[in-house]
Amino acid sequence: MTDEDIAKKVQSGDIEAFGQLVERYEAKMQRYIKRFLYSYEDAQDTVQDVFIKAYTNIQNFNATRKFSPWLYRIAHNTSINLIKKRGKEALPFFDPDTLFPHPVAKQKTDDAWNEQELRAAIDSCLDKLKPNYREPLILYYFEDMDYKSISDVLHIPTSTVGVRINRAKKKLREIYNKPFTNASLREARYERRSNL
């Protein structure tokens, strides 16, 4: 049974069916929110909030569309609200990246960066990236979403997703300022673990 079919069942009053959706998505939501809100103590509560909000708003879900981006959108909104509430990180009031058209960057594995190394680098540098760069990287490299789905989650043009991912990677390179080596990654990971 697809997520959309289960969502339909919940819409028609089958509360127990919602448990199935929670089971299917709790690991994904925890992974996504923990990365996005890595330095927030209440990240765990946010996961619960996301599912509660999904339940209260399930009648607003259009079963002809995919369930996953809809749920991630709720998770995005809830996380952004928490960031705003805590005031630890500055969120831009207006994003100039969404203003003008950009050539759509092709989705491809980066030749210069080994995919695994890149994932590890992102994981260890999340605290150094701004939320608007951090989020598309997480969605693309850890949640395996394509640009179109990320655009549906973040409500930004597809071309802007590409721009943000490229800029975030550039920022990562600046942070490291040296080619990735297993040693530097191990070091970065160790540093992050000790911070946690």
């Binding site: 509360i15 919602f18 929670v22 619960q48 599912f51 509660i52 339940y55 209260t56």
Partner: peptide, 17 residues
């Protein structure tokens, strides 16, 4: 987590719009 969510829903602490 799942039990907490389902309990909150079943107890009527949250209502579906």
């Amino acid at each position: 987590l799942k039990n907490n969510i389902m309990k909150t829903i079943k107890d009527g602490d949250v209502q579906m719009h």
